[in-house]
Amino acid sequence: MSTTSLTDRLGSLLMAPVHLLMRIIDIPLRAVQKAAGIGGMAAVFLAPNMLIFGIFVLLPLVINFVYSMTGGTAFFISERNFVGAEQYQRLFTCTNYLDPMSCQEDAFWTAVGNTFWFVVLQVTLMIGVSLITALILNRDLAARSFWRAVFFFPVLLSPVVVGLIWKWILQRQGLLNFGLYQFGIEPYTWLTDRNWTFIATIGVSIWAHMGLYTLILLAGLQAIPKDLYEAAEMDGTKPERVFRRITLPLLAPNLLVVVVLALIKAVQIFDEVYVLTGGGPGTSTLYLTQYIYETGFASTLRNPGLAAAASILMGLVLVVLTLIQLGVGQRSEKKGKR
């Protein structure tokens, strides 16, 4: 008796109830097929997915608009009163449009400002770091897939774990202070300093996500035909010129996709920041998603309508970014076909 036949038998034993279940499902579906025809079965196969989509994605999307035009703290639509554009007005009521603190919803505008600067700095730095890493990984390396995996590791970690890892390192008796202590610098409480927490959220989110963008950029670099570089080498072209004239233009479509992807993700930043700083100290790392979450669920002055209005404004930004991405993707696809 060989072991394979044993595992085979064990496998078929385990699969037996599944096969039985599938046969039972087949009986009513055969009847359906008789009534609806082969073409009609497409609807049957599509139904579960579309039903879940409809209930948990499309319906909320539609309700969101209704929500944003109602007031009160109740969650059921029937218990909410219609207030028109009041929630939007509330978000946009400011005495001085250049100063977020003068607005009625100053927390919203603080979150918008924080998110804006976070997105600008994080995306710029992350694309820079990812590009350098991808260029280095694209060199003639021994064990390239190992190094690629090294930079990809944090991408798989859960945001909560990422937040806790760095919260532990930035502690007063943490690893960072220990490192600085070796150079004679006194321990510092990084997570109670407004400026440092902001920088920490940027650094930590780059650490956590750069592997993904490195991967996409590396795939783009490897798709560039090698003979172009060989030709340039034969002509004795300088490396800087090779980079500017061959690498950058041919990588441009990938680079754009990566920039937009990173923008979409950065606008929604929440999980790791929530665990790392909780939005604080004060409101120094309060970003949009956390504002929506706290306005909708957590804060004592709960206002789901206001949260819905803010989420719709955020959704508009994301739609614009996604449309850019689709446009860019289509253009690069056409280029590839030509």
Binding site: F53, P304, S311
Partner: peptide, 20 residues
């Protein structure tokens, strides 16, 4: 429709989704 839902992240629909 399926591809369009790629555009609808949780942070945009969390309030109405909670009510559902």
């Amino acid at each position: 429709i399926i591809l369009a839902t790629l555009m609808v992240p949780l942070s945009v629909i969390m309030v109405p989704l909670y009510s559902i």
